[in-house]
Write a protein that binds this DNA or RNA. Sequence first.
RNA 1: GGCCUGGUGGCGGAGUGGUUACGCAGCGGACUGCAAAUCCGCGCACCCGAGUUCGAUUCUCGGCCAGGCCUCCA
Length: 464
Amino acid sequence: MTLVLHDTLAREKRPFEPADPGRVTLYVCGPTVYNYAHIGNARPAVVFDLLFRVLRRLYGEDQVVYARNITDVDDKINQAAIDQDVEIGAITDKFTAIYHQDMDALGVLRPTLEPRATAHIGEMLVLIGKLIEGGSAYAAEGHVLFDTQSFADYGKLSGRSLDDMIAGARVEVAPYKRHPADFVLWKPSKAGEPVWDSPWGAGRPGWHIECSAMVGKTLGDTIDIHGGGHDLIFPHHENEIAQSRCADHTPVYARYWVHNGFLTMDAEKMSKSLGNVKLVHELIKRAPGEALRWALLSGHYRAPLDWTDELIAQSRKSLDRLYGALKRALDVDVDLGGEPPPTVLDALLDDLNTPRAMAELFALAKTLETSEDASERQAAKSALLGAGRLLGFLQQDPIAWFEGGADAGLKAKVEALLVERFAARQAKDWATADRIRDELNALNVVVMDNAEGATWRLKDGETK
RNA sequence: GGCCUGGUGGCGGAGUGGUUACGCAGCGGACUGCAAAUCCGCGCACCCGAGUUCGAUUCUCGGCCAGGCCUCCA
């Protein structure tokens, strides 16, 4: 029962052992709240939500501290505030709330802690002070920069050397930098931007320092797991390591580094210039959040994932299969505290192998559909629900899943037609029965007859 | 140019040194008034080349291709 995680720094899977099993610490880089989250932003939220759930299962709900920050000050937020002529707080409060709603729809649990950058400016200044004192940072022209040459391990995480970075530099290097790779800890604010006082002049923090400050404040100098998107490995996480280790004089900043792979849109990178960004906010209007969650977890978290309409459709059908089995087993009594079966747990403990875990879900559904042994069916249903709870699936009523987004008016209409149709079927009036089925079809409803009448489901499509 | 991923059947996607998951789609059958759902069965793959091996999709090397990072980005 050991969790194995792929550690970016070690470049291999390693058995996970928390420094303190009584307090397992997980930090994940959260959203910059200046706009709606797109589906690519949702991938890490969902992936690390699953890791959070697995850790809680292993170490206890109160033993896992998960911090996911809110970046509520940065260039894009500042620009949005200037454009709309409001304080940055107006922007960040709005999009933080929207982010929460969207993630809720995807079954993402709220993290234990959600620190905000603007609430930790003091901690950042302390950190910067320590770095200057220790000779790891220097002030120049109103900026404070991290001195990358002072840190021997710089580049270890991303696998690059300082020499590589000079060779690969594609941007003009600011003249006050001692080394092209040196990065900003503090910089002067431009006109209209928020300003904080500091010993090095009024200004605002650089990007990377906020995470170091919040990690230190909320979780400690050394944490168990640090997660985020693959693209954050460099420079963001590389810089975090450098800052935190130098400031705190610790040999280890995060004991395990976990990064999720990128999501592409129809095989292309999602980007605003290509116009192919899919917002979670929009997607949840067209498909159940649970299906989107399934889609995000249908591939291994480290592999690239290509987001397509076909993927959403298939995800939905996969859930239809599982909910279908549960629907036909409504008469099977189970206690709701069912445990996830070892097969599912084993799959997840192997570096969060969700495809394998999902395959086990289908195996349980198969047993539930085919077994004639009551206790076996009971065990299968209990295991299916237990596994679903761990993974964040299958927690709604199966009937509700299939009737999905039907409103009360439609439901009443459908039920009335079904009563009428059942009467016709009993009278062997097939013409009437078929005509009513056609009517239902026109309402986007699929009928499933049985001896006592019929159940129904909404066709897949624009309706939820 | 440097660094890092990945190339598996019609599609999605695991895994394995030899009998090759799982889901969707397809085909045949059962059930059904007809369907839908379900059940039974079937077919279909491991980028290319060399090497290691009794044997490689799985290991090694080379190549080709795709994607990502090196600048804000999950």
